[in-house]
Deep mutational scan, measured.
Amino acid sequence: TTVHVNGVTYHFPNPEEAKKFVDRVVKEAGLTVEVKGNQWDVE
C-alpha cells in the first residue's frame, strides 16, 4: 500500500498499517485523504 503525503511517498506492507499511519497524520494535521484503490493521497 502506498501513501502520498504532500508529495512524499510512504510504503506499507499492508493496508492496516497504512490506515493507522493515515489516521494519525490526519488527526495531527487536519489533512484530507483521498483513497484510490491501494493508493492514498493525503493533502
Rank of each mutant, 00 (worst) to 15 (best):
N38C: 15
V33P: 06
V3I: 08
V3Y: 01
T32I: 12
T9F: 08
E16Y: 05
E16V: 06
E28K: 09
E16A: 09
V35N: 08
D41T: 11
V42I: 09
V42F: 06
V42C: 15
V26R: 13
G7L: 01
K36V: 13
D41W: 15
N6K: 04
F12V: 00
H11I: 07
E34D: 11
H11S: 04
F21K: 00
W40H: 11
G7H: 02
K20R: 12
T1K: 03
G37M: 10
V26C: 15
H4S: 13
E43D: 11
V26H: 08
V25H: 06
F21S: 00
K36G: 12
E28R: 07
K27R: 12
K36P: 10
N14V: 01
F12H: 00
G30E: 06
E43L: 14
K19W: 08
H11V: 07
T2C: 15
A29F: 12
F21Q: 00
T32R: 10
V35I: 13
T32G: 09
H4F: 13
L31T: 10
N14Y: 02
T1Y: 14
D23V: 02
Q39S: 11
R24G: 08
Q39E: 12
E16R: 03
T32L: 12
W40Q: 10
Y10T: 03
K36D: 12
W40S: 09
H4V: 15
P15R: 05
F12D: 02
R24L: 12
V26D: 04
W40R: 09
V35Q: 08
T32P: 07
H11D: 04
V35W: 04
G37H: 08
P15E: 15
A29I: 11
H4A: 08
N14W: 01
G7T: 01
T9P: 10
V3L: 03
V42D: 12
N6L: 07
P13T: 12
G30K: 06
K36F: 10
N6M: 06
V33D: 06
N14M: 01
E34R: 13
Q39A: 10
E17V: 04
R24P: 01
E43S: 12
N14D: 09
K36Q: 13
V22W: 13
E17R: 01
D41F: 15
P15I: 14
K27V: 06
F12Q: 00
D23L: 03
R24A: 12
T2Q: 05
N6W: 06
T1P: 03
V22S: 03
T9V: 14
T2F: 12
Y10N: 03
P15H: 10
D41Y: 15
Y10E: 03
K27W: 06
V3F: 01
E17P: 00
V35R: 07
D23E: 12
V42M: 06
D41S: 04
A18K: 02
R24S: 13
V25Y: 12
P15F: 14
E43P: 07
V26W: 08
K20S: 07
N14G: 05
V5P: 00
V35S: 07
V22A: 05
P13M: 09
T1W: 14
V35H: 08
V25W: 13
T2R: 04
N6H: 06
R24I: 09
V33I: 12
K27S: 07
N38V: 04
A29P: 08
V5K: 01
K27Y: 06
T32Q: 12
E28L: 11
N38D: 13
D41V: 15
P13D: 14
V33Q: 05
W40G: 11
V3A: 01
T9A: 13
F12S: 00
V35F: 05
K20V: 06
F12N: 00
K36A: 13
P15Y: 14
